[in-house]
Design a binder for these strands. Structure first.
Lengths: 150, 150
DNA sequence: GTATAATAGTTGCGATAGCAATTAACTAGG
DNA sequence: CCTAGTTAATTGCTATCGCAACTATTATAC
């Protein structure tokens, strides 16, 4: 068993997944860089960019760009937070609400493609292991970032 | 269990992995976009770009750019294939051979960080499942590409 | 209350990546 | 041969992403 295999598979799957997502969501005008934010806003109407960024674990700069694009496409709108004028809250538009079920269906479809040939037990185990890896690697990245600030 | 979880974990892990890899290999002057090619050349001296591209499953354009960068940094050199002058073979330089064991050690370290808290059985299961996902998603991407050429 | 810190958002920059088109070299059919 | 099709490498373009620097607003300390 090769020691570097986990990372290589993750990379390969990620890139192919992005290609697939881009094809699926081409019809909506967005791609792999935006869909996750749209989904997250639909589950947390009124969320601000900082929270979004933490939820999806993507850099604030890219969160900002994704929001801008979704807004321009008409799927979301944003309003200034009255309590804290630095913050902007994001909401789904009617157009956004309409496509959410379709987007969720497409994502389920993609997941089904990826998990083809796995039984429920394997899928559950896989999710547990991926969750653990994410926790481990995020902790390490945080430590590196802290080290730099020393 | 959320249906879109596998993809979300894959994305998050990939991005954090890239950050980690960039930190680890900063000292050599390359990052997440090149290391995989260096490793692959070390295991297949004389390989050409087409083969490399297929091995690491990265687009030929990026394979070309990675090779150029590794060559510029002095870790590899390339020579025209006498049998087929379109093709260029890649080899490690002495400088390249020197760092390979260190790069492999770093990669093992990163894998160890990611797999922390897993026993051997879990690691093996994980690799099997990742391998299956990669197979599934590559097949799907290939089908999409074929469809387009019809 | 004012000066300093911290925080949310934003912008510029460089790295990684896929796709499409081009060039140069090889292969096969006539 | 020589023309047409194929293939390896290359280049231009665009999208995604993290980091650093900056602005505007809020919170804290004195």
């Amino acid at each position: 068993m090769k020691l570097d295999s986990i990372g290589r598979y993750i990379s390969s799957i990620y890139r192919h997944q992005s290609i697939l997502i881009n094809k699926y969501f081409e019809k909506y005008g967005f791609g792999s860089g935006q869909y996750i934010f749209l989904i997250n806003i639909s589950k947390n109407e009124g969320i601000n960019q900082k929270q979004l960024s933490e939820n999806v674990k993507i850099d604030r700069a890219n969160t900002n760009r994704a929001i801008k694009k979704l807004e321009k496409l008409g799927y979301i709108y944003t309003v200034e937070d009255k309590e804290d004028r630095r913050s902007r809250k994001s909401f789904l538009t009617e157009k956004g609400k309409e496509i959410i079920p379709l987007v969720i269906k497409d994502l389920a479809n993609i997941t089904e493609i990826m998990a083809q040939g796995m039984d429920d037990n394997q899928r559950e185990k896989l999710l547990e292991l991926l969750q653990l890896i994410e926790k481990n690697i995020m902790l390490e990245v945080d430590n590196i970032r802290k080290d730099k600030c020393k």
